[in-house]
């Protein structure tokens, strides 16, 4: 958030609050990106686990719960994995929605701030 040189546009409290909001949203956006990446990795791992489970001949497999590996029937593990997958997918969806909302809000603030300060203000990532 840098101002160009020597251009004297008055900055009102309202402008300042818009800039603050933009800064918050930008932060939020990056956090969401990280969360989404983690969630996607999690989903991939669950997917891998499910696939391995289909291939295995064992009736009882080890499933990590807490710090130990529980011996659990294959079918039950399948259920657990499916439940986890469904939950993760829902969370991922929520994160994506939130990201869209943040981006939309940022775009709106950009129009307002660029409208007022022209090129005296820089809202782009380096």
């Amino acid at each position: 958030m840098q101002q160009g040189e020597g251009n004297e546009t008055e900055v009102t409290w309202e402008d300042q609050q818009n800039i603050n909001a933009f800064s918050r949203l930008n932060n939020k956006f990056h956090e969401l990106e990280d969360d989404i990446k983690l969630k996607k990795e999690m989903l991939e791992n669950l997917e891998d686990a499910s696939n391995e489970l289909i291939l295995t001949d064992e009736d009882v497999v080890r499933y990590q719960l807490g710090e130990v590996f529980c011996h659990i029937l294959k079918d039950e593990v399948e259920e657990r994995l499916d439940a986890l997958k469904a939950e993760s997918e829902k969370e991922l969806e929520q994160l994506e929605e939130e990201k869209e909302a943040v981006l939309a809000h940022m775009a709106k603030l950009k129009t307002i701030l660029y409208g007022k300060f022209k090129d005296s203000v820089n809202l782009e990532e380096d």
């Binding site: 958030m1 840098q2 101002q3 160009g4 040189e5 020597g6 251009n7 004297e8 900055v11 300042q16 800039i19 603050n20 800064s23 918050r24 932060n27």
Partner: peptide, 27 residues
């Protein structure tokens, strides 16, 4: 943290404005 972020932004903008004001005055 959000509150803090606002304060950081306000201070940064104020620094830029004081600096710009100074450049303007000199000019």
């Amino acid at each position: 943290l959000q509150f803090l972020r606002d304060q950081v932004t306000i201070t940064e903008v104020t620094i830029a404005r004081v600096f710009n004001w100074d450049v303007h005055q000199r000019r």
